[in-house]
Write a protein that binds this DNA or RNA. Structure first.
Lengths: 331, 331
DNA sequence: TTGTACGCGTTATCAC
DNA sequence: GTGATAACGCGTACAA
């Protein structure tokens, strides 16, 4: 690999001069300049960002810790992030936990060893371990999707309000008996907040909630389907609508409903959160909440850049907007 | 940021000793060892992979150039890649062209400046410029999705055979008048090979192909819908089935067919390539070809690692398998 | 068993 | 205008 020394030698100047023409600072004669550029062109020399970083203590790389890439929401967010970061000359170094979320702390250290300028963590849960790991970190860390303020700056979706809005949408078209399909509560945002939103909205409207109406599922369609099945089996009083915390769960449940011969939304209405591509191609089209993932990505990117540039006094919290997509599965 | 020197000083030994306990090579007394580990623990010292790389000329980072992440196939492939690379201790540095595919060459240089150990390029087209850029590169480059052999090692999907198989599947259930929705031919794999597969299969079966039956579309559903519309408008003889080169196009077309009151698959059957999540939730379920994207990701990962480890004599070509998913839209 | 000295490819600080 | 020279954080002969 050709180095700055090779260029200097071949151009008959010193390293310093080469560096000067490369970074266009300091004075350098036209003669030397053209000669240097010429040699660079010939040799196909590419300066080592790596060596530069060692010296400048800046890599222009942001580490991103995520559970897995092949998820529509995640990849959208990363896309948005990348667009924003690229503008500022940063690149993304991926660090996937492969759903082993307990390893998030290790990934922080891994990225630190690479001397990334900052870390974006896709929040999957919230406990002491991860919180400590972030505090120990010597580079700025920001979290997306879980509220780690006031300790760590975060970009969060408005899970509580979005859930209330979704349930309200069902209520507005006349439903009172509304079931819920949620996920594990270790995930504060998706597990707890969305559940809380559901319960509060039901309560504020004076709607009763039977225990059997609340089911917990995993992350795939089959799981949503099972949860829906249980809801029907164990309950004397069948709900007329279901709010599922993710599109996948809703689609699984809706499929089961259709298979059972129920008319959707006539006998059973559905709404969820995600605005996935699948949600707009199922029949009927699934009513859902758009979380504007790309925007979230851009926000989290801006946030980490901010933390890198200026030493922030205290943690910042950005709450994303959401948009209700009232589609055919609603009524 | 605490360095190896700080550790050495605080532990009362030399840098060399610290380095030895870190890399567990060479002899080091138990006393020194425990002392060093103790100090490391206290300070939260994380060795700089960056500085190490400068010395060892190995970053353990693979650069990945892709058009955009928020595509189901792309994110699946990257997921597969990452899984395989992580096993070998590598991480992925993303470099998205944001669909400006003419910038692929620039991205190769960008990644070279970061001194990545190897580059994986998601092939979007094939021309002199990109081929030269790859040849100029001083690090191994492999391509996924376009056949760059014998110049550059590639992992390719079997676009030609998959297309023939898809068309054959339609023929096997009785269709003879089969339309085609393709994409721009700058993309050799998707644009040309799939088209060629379609034409050859039609020809081999002695089926006529009217020019109006062959439409070119973009990448979104709306585009597929339009293409289908044109196919019907401009042709006296309406096809009874359509092969679209991507799921999105097929779903767009199918939607249009349903909107126009045609029964699917009764009056119009569909098949495509992609096996997207959307393909299994549309009604009727879309027949499609699974390209096993995760496997492709693992293959391309293995390939680049191979090129890094041993100086390959000549370019290798790996042709991926595919699987036909015969679903409801077929008959 | 441990330490010295040098180099990896840059940038920054001087002095000329 | 230009060029030595010293860092940056680490690995590794070579010596001791």
């Amino acid at each position: 690999m050709v180095t700055i020394n090779d260029i200097a030698r071949q151009a008959g100047v010193s390293r310093t001069t080469v560096s000067r023409v490369l970074n266009q600072n300091g004075y350098v004669s036209d003669r030397a300049k053209t000669k240097v550029l010429e040699v660079i062109e010939e040799t196909g020399y590419v300066p080592s960002e790596q060596a530069k970083s060692l010296r400048t203590k800046k890599t222009n790389v942001i580490g991103v810790i995520l559970p897995r890439l092949s998820s529509e929401t995640v990849s959208r967010v990363v896309d948005g992030m990348d667009r924003e970061l690229a503008k500022a000359g940063y690149q993304i170094l991926l660090s996937s936990t492969s759903l082993e979320t307990e390893k998030e702390a290790d990934h922080i250290r891994l990225l630190e060893s690479r001397r990334v300028d900052g870390i974006v963590l896709f929040g999957t849960h919230k406990d002491e371990a991860i919180l400590n790991a972030i505090k120990q970190a010597k580079v700025p860390v920001v979290v997306l999707g879980q509220d780690f303020t006031p300790h760590v700056s975060s970009v969060v979706y408005n899970d509580y309000e979005a859930s209330r809005a979704a349930v309200a949408a069902l209520a507005d078209v006349g439903h009172e008996k509304i079931g819920f399909i949620g996920v594990d509560e270790a995930d504060i945002a998706v597990g707890q907040e969305r559940r809380r939103g559901y319960l509060d909205e039901m309560k504020s409207r004076g709607f009763a909630v039977l225990p059997e109406w609340m089911q917990t599922a995993g992350f795939d369609m089959a799981s949503g389907s099972e949860a829906f099945q249980k809801m029907l089996e164990y309950s004397q009083t069948r709900p007329t609508a279901v709010f599922a915390v993710t599109d996948r769960l809703a689609i699984g449940a809706m499929q089961r409903a259709k298979d059972a011969g129920m008319s959707v939304p006539g006998e059973m209405a559905f709404i969820s959160i995600g605005a996935s591509e699948a949600s707009q191609v199922v029949t009927p089209k699934l009513a859902t909440v758009d979380y504007y993932n790309e925007d979230a990505g851009m926000s989290i990117a801006s946030l980490i850049l901010e933390e890198i540039d200026e030493d922030m006094k205290d943690a910042k919290k950005i709450v994303m907007n959401y948009g209700l997509l009232l589609r055919d599965s609603l009524c």
